[in-house]
Amino acid sequence: GLTEEQKQEIREAFDLFDTDGSGTIDAKELKVAMRALGFEPKKEEIKKMISEIDKDGSGTIDFEEFLTMMTA
C-alpha cells in the first residue's frame, strides 16, 4: 500500500491538474497536465487515457481513479 506521504503527494498532483476545483479531472485538464509534463497528446490519446482510467464511465477522472493510475 501507499504511505500517507505518498498519498498526499498524489493528492497535490491531482489538485494541480483539477484546475477548476471540481474534484475530477476532465479531458481538457488532463491535456493541460500532460503538456506541463512535456507531452503533446492528441485528442484521441487523451480520450483513450481517460477511458482506460475512468472505471465508472463518467468521462472524468476522480481521485480514486487517479490514485489507481499513479500506482499501477
Rank of each mutant, 00 (worst) to 15 (best):
G57Y: 07
D20L: 05
K28Y: 09
M49Y: 11
T24S: 08
E45P: 02
D18V: 06
A27M: 15
F14W: 06
I25D: 00
E52Y: 13
A72R: 11
D18C: 10
K31L: 15
K31G: 14
R11V: 01
M34P: 00
I50C: 08
G21N: 07
M70C: 11
D56T: 10
A27D: 03
K7S: 04
I46K: 01
V32C: 15
K42G: 13
A72E: 08
G1M: 08
F63W: 09
T3F: 03
L37K: 01
M70Y: 06
E29R: 08
G1C: 14
A13S: 04
D15W: 07
S58A: 04
L37C: 15
K7M: 10
K42D: 13
A27L: 14
R11I: 02
E12A: 15
D62I: 03
V32G: 15
L37W: 04
G57H: 10
L16Q: 07
M34Y: 05
G59N: 06
A72Q: 09
M70F: 11
R35H: 13
E44G: 10
K31P: 15
E40H: 13
V32N: 15
Q6F: 13
I10L: 12
P41C: 15
E64Y: 05
A72V: 08
D20I: 03
E5K: 09
P41M: 14
K55E: 05
A36W: 14
E9P: 04
F66N: 00
E12S: 12
E40Q: 10
M70H: 04
I50A: 06
M70S: 01
D54P: 04
R11H: 04
P41N: 05
G59C: 09
E45A: 05
L37D: 02
G57S: 05
L37Q: 03
G38F: 02
L16W: 09
A36Q: 11
F17K: 01
T24W: 10
F14V: 00
K48D: 08
A27E: 05
I61G: 00
F39G: 01
R11F: 03
A72P: 07
K31A: 15
D62W: 03
K42Y: 07
D20S: 08
G1R: 11
K55F: 06
E45F: 11
M34L: 11
R11P: 00
A13R: 04
K47E: 15
R35V: 11
F63Y: 05
M69K: 02
M34D: 01
T71S: 10
A13F: 10
I61P: 00
L30W: 05
E12G: 10
E5W: 09
G59D: 07
E44K: 05
T3D: 03
E29Y: 14
F63C: 02
I46E: 03
E4M: 10
K48R: 08
E44L: 03
Q6M: 05
F39T: 02
S58M: 06
F14C: 04
E44W: 10
A27S: 09
L16S: 05
E45V: 09
G23A: 03
K31I: 15
A27Q: 06
A72I: 07
G57V: 05
T19R: 11
D15L: 12
M34C: 07
E5V: 10
E9N: 13
I50K: 01
F17R: 02
G38P: 01
K7H: 06
V32A: 15
A33P: 01
K7R: 10
F66S: 00
K55C: 09
I50G: 01
M49G: 02
T19S: 11
F63M: 03
F66L: 02
S51Q: 10
E52W: 15
D18I: 06
S51E: 12
A27H: 06
E65R: 14
D26Q: 11
G59H: 06
E52S: 13
L2D: 02
G57Q: 08
E5T: 11
K47V: 11
I61S: 00
L37G: 02
T60V: 09
I46C: 13
K28C: 14
R11Y: 02
G23T: 02
A33L: 15
E64W: 09
F63Q: 00
S58R: 11
G1S: 10
F39L: 08
G59F: 08
P41W: 10
S22G: 02
I25V: 03
E5R: 09
T24Q: 06
E9M: 15
D18A: 04
L30N: 00
I53V: 11
F66V: 02
G21S: 05
D56N: 13
D18N: 04
L67N: 01
A72K: 12
I10T: 01
M70P: 00
M34A: 02
F39E: 02
E40C: 15
M49A: 04
E9A: 11
K28F: 07
K47I: 13
I46L: 11
S58K: 12
I53D: 03
M49Q: 04
D18F: 06
R11N: 01
A36H: 14
I46T: 04
R35A: 14
K28L: 06
G23D: 01
K7E: 04
T60W: 09
G21M: 05
F39S: 02
P41Y: 15
E5A: 14
K48E: 03
G23Q: 05
T68G: 09
I50E: 04
L16M: 09
A36N: 07
I46V: 05
P41F: 13
T68C: 12
Q8I: 07
K7G: 02
F39K: 05
G23N: 03
T24D: 04
F17N: 02
T71F: 10
L2F: 10
I53P: 02
I10R: 02
I25N: 00
E29N: 12
D20T: 07
G23V: 01
E44Q: 06
I50Y: 07
F14S: 00
L37Y: 04
T3R: 06
D54L: 07
T19W: 11
F17Y: 10
A33W: 07
M69H: 04
S22E: 01
K55G: 08
T71A: 11
M69Y: 11
F17H: 04
S58H: 07
F63A: 01
G38E: 02
D26E: 06
K47C: 15
G57N: 08
K47T: 10
K42I: 08
T24I: 04
D15M: 12
G38Y: 03
A72F: 11
T3C: 09
M70E: 00
M49V: 05
T24N: 03
L67W: 06
G1Y: 13
E29H: 14
T24M: 08
K43C: 15
K42W: 09
K55A: 08
E44N: 06
M69T: 03
K48C: 14
I25S: 00
E40A: 06
K28T: 08
E40N: 11
G23K: 04
T71V: 11
E5N: 09
G38C: 13
L16E: 04
S22N: 08
F66Q: 00
D54I: 13
E64H: 11
R11T: 01
L2T: 04
K43V: 12
F66E: 00
D15N: 13
I25C: 06
A27G: 05
I61A: 01
L37V: 04
Q8K: 14
L30G: 00
I61M: 04
K48P: 03
I10E: 00
A27N: 03
T60S: 08
T60K: 13
F63R: 02
A13K: 10
D26M: 12
D26A: 12
A33F: 14
G59Q: 06
T24Y: 08
T60H: 07
K7Q: 08
D18Y: 03
S22V: 03
M49H: 03
F17L: 09
A13I: 13
E45I: 12
S51F: 09
E5H: 12
T3Q: 04
A33H: 02
Q6N: 07
A27R: 08
R35L: 15
S22P: 01
A33T: 03
